[in-house]
Design a protein around this nucleic acid. Structure first.
Lengths: 205, 205
DNA sequence: ACTTATGGATAGTGGCACTATCCACCTGAG
DNA sequence: CTCAGGTGGATAGTGCCACTATCCATAAGT
């Protein structure tokens, strides 16, 4: 198919697809002439994936490229390749604010230890979490509304189910499923939380 | 205190505070002369709140202003004032993409009915959720990795605890707690999920 | 033949969150 | 009292970023 059809199939304007090609978010089609190339289903899928990362996940284009690149690198083990993609997605959500205080960094480490989690020092979520705790503290809510353990319990349960859902016969697509689970899953959870909160508030007040 | 100290206390540059004043995110200080005004603790707190909304929540300045304005409006009932703030926060996270398909809109309505949730048609999370489901479908994961109900269960449990945690003797601050719960709580949950996922993956692979 | 599409390069746009500069005026240390 | 430096306020500029527009030589479709 030609770029016009790729555009129709995905709903993404042709100039934008050209932009994604330039930026390396979407691979070039197979050349059939000096100014002609043909695209296939994999390109359709790739464009849709980019839109999901950008629209739902809010990833900047550069981060999306990094994630997509890592997604296709082989990796020495399943754990390693999955981990790299996972880290990249979380890193992309950090708009590099100031480094968190040592106090909250310690608190995060303690929480992880207390729950017996296996999380490396390099996991970007550590810094994110510490940063959020700092904001709570500065706003006079030192214990994060007393919900930290509630959230941690929920996170633990979710993660177990999510990792279990990753395993399928198709190992090739596991990296992509990690991305979808992290980015789209997070948005899904957030939206459901917004609905459940209204419901709970309605019956409580 | 003068603006320089407000800047020191919050770590926000003076020109940025001036910008927030202009944009109505932070109220003006009490005038003590033609070109002099004094600020107090409430201003310190307000600036910190703005930073939390912007840095952690990623809210655009205009949305942050709307949320902050609603936060201080009286409201006819607790439910109503809380609801308005809640909706505003969720609306702010919608970067107004295309309208979701009727198919996923229906799916959302069915899910809400099936779980017996009380959620109005106008809840912005409905559209967000439907949009995310559309992305899943387009990407060939029609059942959202089979985790929809897992997420919904978690959301339900979380919302119950969150709404319960809102109730305190200080009704004045409830609206602010709604904001913090929604914005910072969401970030907290996301980070914890990232840590728990690594942990779960480590022991599974 | 001739309208339309294509790949590729280059430049431009619009939105947004700040920053910088200016100015007249005030404050506080010495 | 002096004067360096801060202040409120207005206006303009900056840097980033995700596109979007324009051009061009060439190729495809009718």
């Amino acid at each position: 198919m030609k770029i016009a059809e790729l555009s129709r199939r995905t709903g993404v304007p042709v100039p934008t697809i050209k932009y994604y090609l330039r930026e390396g978010l979407v691979p070039h089609g197979e050349r059939t002439g000096p100014n002609q190339a043909s695209y296939d289903e994999s390109h359709v899928h790739r464009v849709r994936l980019v839109r999901a990362l950008v629209e739902v996940g809010g990833l900047p284009i550069a981060s999306a490229r990094e994630v997509l690149t890592l997604m296709h690198e082989p990796g020495r083990s399943r754990l390693e390749s999955v981990g790299k993609v996972h880290f990249a997605v979380h890193r992309a959500r950090q708009p590099q604010s100031e480094t968190p205080s040592t106090a909250s960094t310690t608190r995060v480490a303690e929480l992880i230890a207390r729950r017996g989690w296996q999380a490396r020092e390099t996991n970007p979520a550590r810094a994110t979490l510490a940063g959020v705790l700092d904001h709570f503290t500065r706003l006079g809510e030192p214990d994060a509304l007393g919900l930290l353990d509630v959230y941690a319990d929920a996170a633990e349960g979710l993660a177990t189910a999510e990792i279990a859902a990753l395993s399928g016969p198709e190992v090739d697509h596991m990296a992509e499923r990690v991305v979808l689970m992290t980015v789209l899953g997070g948005a899904l959870l957030d939206a459901l939380r917004g609905l459940a909160q209204e419901s709970s508030a309605t019956s409580s007040f």
